[in-house]
Design a protein around this nucleic acid. Structure first.
Lengths: 197, 197
DNA sequence: CGGTTCCTTGAGGATGATCAACGAGGGTGG
DNA sequence: CCACCCTCGTTGATCATCCTCAAGGAACCG
């Protein structure tokens, strides 16, 4: 979702700078704030005890994140970290609710955004549970192209092998080997280590 | 979510009977209706080409389902099927929107329900991606107990091994063998094949 | 009882994970 | 310009885990 900066500021929200790699919240924290990215980008993710990571989502300039938790009585199920130096605007839960009451069409926007996230997470689980590495990777790539509205064309994928692994729940080596096979099958191209799909 | 029957009926919704195992919609269908369970229960799930199944969620009397798709421009990512003989109320998309406009606190309810679903799906992906069969099963059991608000006590789990497998993305045999180990470790009990946790 | 559904067990195999090592490329500072 | 570092990509060998296939047993129901 995106809430106008004027509104956020009028209601007393505070912008804060974060260095690359700083945590905005941790798994298990009590959710108290609405967050929106002003500059930079944010990743929401989980790690398990072996340090393995799973990326739940990424958020860029204009996106808010973590809002669902404000509506339910649960702790954050994941961590949020900046992917680069960033500025994040922060507003207390009750003020956020007040804004929602004031601007009913923000509620509609929110419903819309939540609906998208549910759809996203449904398709992701579906793809991850059922399939082999190659299909998982293809699903991920398709989702990316869809997100940036380049579904027709071949584009360079701006993710490292490790990032793809984190999004698909695979290991780097597995991603690399799968991509190698896919290159032979010509389902992807690899030019100077850059992935094209 | 739950919308009062009087409201639904006033707006011309239709109740339909379904036999056990009938499809309400299929993956790939165009979403056109709001659905709410009046009697019986519904499961939303995916299958892959090998017939493997993944359960996305289950819905009981009073629950609506599939609503997120009404807000976005996508086809159903999953199937919906009745788990027993059921009665489902059905309302066209635009009438559903009209109701939402009429009753703003239904919007709030909807936001709340969507938020819960997002949380659910996040924790599920987290648990499924990262962990071994035993932890996945424990996560599933915990989620179930939480849902029915019996978190303190040991209860009989009303799911077959196959159903647990479908929820956790495992195979039946794996579930059975994991449960056997867990029984030895005393993390679950099995009495006359019934699972207690 | 006969059928159906569910549970169980064993053997064998495939696949992805793990561990270890190395190569390529880009950036930085001397 | 070169040396160094750091991140990212790659490869091979080995292993553990879960899946697959097959068969049979237990429980329940009409």
């Amino acid at each position: 979702m995106f809430v106008d900066y004027e509104i956020l500021i009028a209601w007393g929200s505070v912008a804060k700078k974060y260095k690359k790699g700083e945590y905005i919240f941790h798994e298990g924290d009590l959710p108290k704030f609405f967050f929106q990215v002003i500059e930079g980008s944010v990743k929401i993710f989980n790690t398990n005890n072996e340090g393995r990571e799973f990326t739940q989502g990424a958020f860029n300039v204009g996106d808010s994140f973590g809002e669902p938790l404000l509506f339910i009585d649960e702790l954050y199920p994941s961590n949020a970290i900046t992917l680069e130096d960033s500025v994040i605007i922060k507003l207390s839960k009750d003020k956020f609710f007040a804004i929602l009451d004031e601007y009913p069409n923000l509620q509609k926007k929110l419903i819309h955004v939540f609906a998208e996230r549910i759809w996203n997470k449904s398709t992701t689980s579906r793809d991850i549970i059922n399939t082999n590495p190659e299909s998982r990777i293809i699903s991920f790539l398709k989702a990316y192209k869809k997100k940036i509205k380049k579904e027709g064309e071949d584009i360079e994928i701006p993710y490292t092998r490790q990032q793809i692994a984190n999004y698909t729940g695979l290991r780097v080596e597995t991603v690399i080997r799968a991509l190698a096979k896919m290159k032979i099958k010509k389902s992807v191209q690899i030019v100077k280590r850059k992935l094209i799909y």
